[in-house]
Design a binder for these strands. Structure first.
Length: 469
RNA sequence: GGCCCCGUCGUCUAGCGGUCAGGACGCCGGCCUUUCAAGCCGGAGGUCGCGGGUUCGAAUCCCGUCGGGGCUACCA
């Protein structure tokens, strides 16, 4: 059997972390089995669906590299087909029209609550003669649920889950305005799209029972279900948009890399022994539903950040330059060809120390900032009278001895100068760092010098000695 | 309220009848060292929610209990 999975978000907000993980699992499962990964936009709720949200979902998936194998299906476009299926159920006696008003339904619920009985539709119109229908009222179409027996879902993650059929009420399939509801649409679309495995959040576990009955009423085979646990916020509750949960775009802006995000999301609720760093290739090779946990997980920014730092160091220097330049420019530091070259030369040391793209950019500022440099507090302290005096000596030695401008030669020379001055190497190195970078912390000194180039180094030393910086 | 799911260090997890309950993030200390990272080494941190069973032996099986979550719409 060909494996076909699908990610089916409703476009009522950005793509959040939970949706991203669901998409990832579906994508991985399809890839692992050489099947297809499809995307369906569940936009049947016209009031809440927006084009902006649809774009955000496309952008988010694209950034994460979870590209569907076929053009996305927009559920609303298929409403005729959905209604047609409902009509068939009606014709076959598997569904019926219901003329209950909202008020009647509300009263029904109130009564049930008062009597401490389960709150659900009581089947008023199930056997009532349609001839008794009140005039001028548009009916909804409800499914005729079995009233005895049980519905079993052999969930690939949750295991065998059973519910008594009398817990299921005759839910609405088609609204009074003729539009299909989610319960009908998912089933018809999953069937028509040939979906073999429905992998989704376990907030849909209860829906699976209802949908199983729709599949049965339509005479269709049930797909395999896999309900994965939800991701909770720090407060332990379901992640929701109005809950301060962020869209994937926000993480991109914070400087996270998609490969880090994929690795992190994969480990949230799925495990493969003690493996933590899992490349996408290995993820595809290893992913299965058995590895999914059943407990909800909490999102941990620190761990995502640690993974991100790892993947940052793995990236090519040139790619990182491209990623960091827009950030530097946004920070008010235009990057010209010279700046680009310096960034490329210095990226090795820079990326080793960064955790995200934003602190990478922050740490790279000194390569592209205009002289004289602004000093941070630590650098200012390093450039006191003593420090500046040592810098003057060092500058003179650099010009006088004219060592080759390579890391090795510069280091050997600087160490010799420190010895000549009778100070520990650190006493000389730190003021140099402050002069060249304006900071007390930076990548290796000689890497910085080489990246900056001799002229710039001398100019920055001059600035520092003269107290300009 | 009803139904369904879940419960191992702070967090993510490994574990599937016999392990000193392992790893990762975070935290603490050390080494390295021109700063900071990285790397390496070491440490603190879990009576496996709780209570009963079953068993020679339970985090692992059963029952109960408590706690958390989800669903209970003419939303998806």
């Amino acid at each position: 059997m060909t494996v076909i999975t699908r990610f089916a978000p409703s476009p009522t907000g950005f793509l959040h972390i939970g949706g991203a993980r669901t998409a990832l699992f579906n994508w991985l499962y399809a890839r692992h089995h050489g099947g297809k990964f499809l995307l369906r936009i569940e936009d049947t709720d016209r009031a809440r669906s927006t084009d902006a949200a649809i774009d955000a979902i496309f952008d988010g998936l694209d950034w994460l590299g979870l590209v569907p194998d076929e053009p996305p299906v927009h559920q609303y476009d298929r409403r005729e087909r959905h209604a047609e299926c409902a009509m068939r159920m009606l014709a076959e006696g598997r569904a019926y029209r219901c003329w209950c008003s909202q008020e009647e339904l509300e009263a029904m619920r109130e009564r049930a609550r008062a009597e401490k009985r389960p709150v659900r539709y009581d089947g008023t119109w199930r056997d009532r003669d349609p001839a008794e229908a009140p005039p001028g009222v548009d009916p909804v179409i409800r499914i005729k649920m079995p009233r005895s027996g049980e519905t079993v879902i052999d969930d690939r993650v949750q295991g065998r889950v059973v519910v008594q059929n009398d817990e299921l009420d005759d839910m609405v399939l088609v609204r009074a305005d003729g539009s299909p509801t989610y319960m009908l649409s998912v089933v018809v679309d999953d069937h028509d799209m040939g979906v073999s495995h429905v992998i989704r959040g376990d907030d849909h576990l209860n829906n699976a029972f209802r949908q199983a009955q729709v599949f049965a009423a339509l005479g269709w085979e049930l797909p395999a279900f896999a309900h994965i646990p939800l991701i909770h916020g720090p407060d332990g509750a379901k992640l929701s948009k109005r809950h301060g949960a962020l869209g994937v775009a926000a993480y991109r802006e914070m400087g996270f890399l998609p490969e880090a995000m994929r690795n992190y999301l994969l480990r949230l609720g799925w495990g493969h022994g003690d493996d933590e760093i899992i490349s996408t290739e290995d993820a595809v090779r290893w992913f299965d539903l058995d590895g999914c946990g059943r407990a909800a997980a909490r999102f941990d920014l620190d761990k995502l950040t640690a993974l991100n730092a790892h993947y940052l160091r793995l990236r090519d220097d040139d790619e990182l330059v491209d990623l960091v330049v827009p950030r530097l420019e946004a920070m008010g530091h235009p990057v010209d060809a010279t700046g680009q070259a310096r960034l490329r030369a210095g990226m090795g040391g820079l990326k080793q120390r960064a955790r995200r793209l934003d602190d990478l950019a922050e740490a790279a500022v000194f390569y592209v900032a205009e002289r004289p440099l602004a000093l941070d507090a630590k650098a200012a302290k390093l450039l006191d009278d003593d420090g500046r005096a040592r810098l003057a000596d060092y500058r003179a030695a650099l010009v006088g001895d004219a060592p080759a401008f390579t890391q090795e030669a510069l280091e050997a020379h600087a160490r010799a100068v420190a010895e000549r001055l009778g100070v520990g190497f650190g006493k000389l190195a730190q003021p140099i760092r402050a002069a060249l970078t304006g900071r007390g912390v930076s990548p290796g000194l000689f890497e910085v010098m080489v990246a900056l180039g001799r002229d710039e180094v001398l100019a920055r030393l001059d600035d520092a000695v003269a107290g300009r910086a």
